[in-house]
Design a protein around this nucleic acid. Structure first.
Ligand SMILES: [Mn+2]
Ligand SMILES: [Mn+2]
Ligand SMILES: [Zn+2]
Ligand SMILES: [Zn+2]
Lengths: 121, 121
DNA sequence: AACGGAAATGAAAACCATTTTCATTTGTGC
DNA sequence: GCACAAATGAAAATGGTTTTCATTTCCGTT
């Protein structure tokens, strides 16, 4: 199940920030790399599975991918330009743990993202 | 520009909570209402425009709509059986507001979900 | 009531990201 | 080299959403 194609990962690194599968594919083509769109999708899925990249959705529904730092973190994303800030989520961690406990849930994880307009937009 | 079809709005109300355009369309059909899918989409777009309805995206990319009036809340979802608990998110609201302020973002919304195993699973 | 232009409607086609299929290629252990 | 599994990618399918465009419904004016 390890389809994390290193060329796709390297391209995503080089892109810096978020990029969609289509964008990564076009980038690789423009740079003369031979790869199929299907493989790009599969590599990204695998990277998400392995928690090496984060995936979220643009407003238009297209999935965008980004390398995830080591530490657990959350995102503040600009709806205008796509700029992203990694933010600390201590409050969320506590909230999630408390809510889970309160309702008898165990083995919990969480997702939390903030969307808005950055100062430039 | 006022295409907020009242029958679509009423169906969304009746659905309670989130519903996709397709779901609303199917619901109306099942109840014998004559309407086109295109009209459902246009009505929802218009309602979002008028800020009567919120729109967000499911993980699979499908857009889901919800009346703005309903109280804002979050979900605690069981990965085993799918059971969902609606939970209060005051801590999240504060966190989101604080993070946005800190980074000069405005007009912010957020998503937050907790996933785990419920007591039964 | 009759006319006329504007808005609304919806069926069908277009669009487009993503997934699936499947034949082919590549890699790996023996 | 051989056999078998995994990876690849072109092409087709999928499915939500948007566009097109012909038709119908509204509405204000005569
Ligand atoms: Mn995180
Ligand atoms: Mn909230
Ligand atoms: Zn911005
Ligand atoms: Zn459960």
């Amino acid at each position: 199940m390890s389809r994390s194609n290193p060329r796709v990962l390297s391209t995503l690194e080089r892109a810096g920030g978020f990029a969609s599968a289509q964008e990564i594919y076009r980038l690789m083509q423009r740079e003369g790399e031979s790869i199929g769109l299907t493989t790009v999708y599969r590599a990204l899925q695998s990277l998400v599975n392995d928690k090496i990249v984060d995936v979220l959705r643009r407003d238009d529904g297209e999935a965008i991918y980004r390398l995830c730092g080591e530490a657990h973190h959350h995102h503040l994303v600009c709806k205008g330009c796509g700029d992203t800030v990694e933010i600390e989520g201590g409050a969320i961690e506590k909230w999630a743990k408390m809510m889970a406990e309160e309702h008898g849930f165990r083995d919990v994880g969480h997702t939390a993202e903030i969307f808005g307009l950055c100062a430039k937009c």
